[in-house]
Simulated scan of single mutants.
Amino acid sequence: MQLLLLFQLLTLVVVANAVPVFAKRCFGPATAWPLDGGLVLSDGQPLLGASKTIRGILLSMVLTPVVAMLIGLSWQVGVVVAFSAMAGDLVSSFLKRRMGLRASDQAIGLDQIPESLLPLLAARWLLPVTTVDILVGTALFIVGSLVVSRLLFRLNMRDKPY
C-alpha cells in the first residue's frame, strides 16, 4: 500500500465531492441550475434532483485539478478524479431517485461507494494505484464521510447530519 499516494488521492476525492456542498453554502440558490433541467421521469421522480447542479459539477472540475497540482499530482489526475467522483455522485443520485429517496436522504454505501470507488479506479489510468489502495481508500472514504458529514452539519454546512 502506498500511503502518500492514497492520502493524495483521498484528498482529491474529498475535494471533488465537497466543492459542490460548499458552493451551495457560498452562493445559495444563485446559479444553482439543476443539471437535469428539472426533468421528471415516468416514475414521478426527478432524473437526478435539484441538488445536482451545473455549478457544483463545474466548480469541482475546476478546483480539484488546482488542488492536485498543489499536493504534487498532475492537473490531469485532478480532472480524472473530479470527473469520476461527479459521475459516481450522479449515479448514486439517479439510483436514489429510482428508490424513491429524496435529495439528501441517507443511503449508507450508495452515498459513498460510487463517488470514491470510481475515482480511485480511474486513477489507475495515470498512477500506480493497487487494488489494496482502492479497497482501503474506499473504506476510509465511507467512514470518513460519515464522521465529517456530522461535523459539517454542526457547522451549518450541511442540511442533514449525514
Score class of each variant (00 low, 15 high):
Val67Met: 11
Val15Tyr: 01
Leu59Gln: 06
Val91Met: 15
Leu117Asp: 06
Asp159Val: 08
Leu73Ser: 06
Leu118Lys: 02
Gly137Tyr: 10
Gln45His: 13
Ser92Ile: 12
Phe83His: 04
Gly78Leu: 03
Asp133Gln: 07
Leu59Cys: 10
Ala30Trp: 15
Phe141Trp: 15
Ala32Tyr: 09
Phe22Trp: 15
Glu115Met: 14
Gly100Leu: 13
Gly100Ile: 09
Gly49Trp: 08
Val21Asn: 06
Tyr162Lys: 04
Phe27Pro: 07
Val147Phe: 14
Ile57His: 07
Tyr162Gly: 11
Ala30Ser: 14
Gly137Leu: 02
Asp133Gly: 01
Asp159Trp: 04
Ile54Met: 11
Gly44Ile: 08
Gly56Leu: 09
Ser74Thr: 15
Ile57Asn: 03
Gly28Gln: 09
Gly49Ala: 10
Val143Trp: 11
Leu58Phe: 11
Met1Tyr: 13
Leu110Asn: 13
Met99Gly: 11
Pro114Cys: 09
Leu9Gln: 04
Thr53Cys: 09
Val40Arg: 14
Met69Ile: 01
Ile54Glu: 06
Lys24Gln: 13
Gly88Lys: 08
Ala82Met: 08
Thr130Ile: 05
Val15Glu: 01
Leu47Thr: 04
Pro34His: 11
Ala23Tyr: 03
Val136His: 00
Arg97Val: 12
Leu4Pro: 01
Gly49Cys: 02
Leu4Lys: 12
Val14Phe: 12
Trp125Ser: 03
Leu127Gly: 01
Ile134Arg: 01
Pro20Leu: 06
Ala103Ile: 01
Leu4Gly: 05
Gly100Val: 12
Pro46Lys: 08
Ser51Pro: 03
Gly49Gln: 05
Pro161Ser: 10
Pro29Gln: 14
Pro29Met: 13
Arg102Cys: 09
Val136Glu: 01
Gln2Phe: 10
Ser104Thr: 13
Gly144Arg: 05
Leu3Gly: 05
Ala123Trp: 00
Leu5Trp: 08
Leu41Ile: 11
Leu10Asp: 07
Gly109Glu: 11
Val132Pro: 00
Ser116Asp: 02
Arg150Cys: 06
Arg25Tyr: 00
Pro119Ile: 08
Asp89Phe: 11
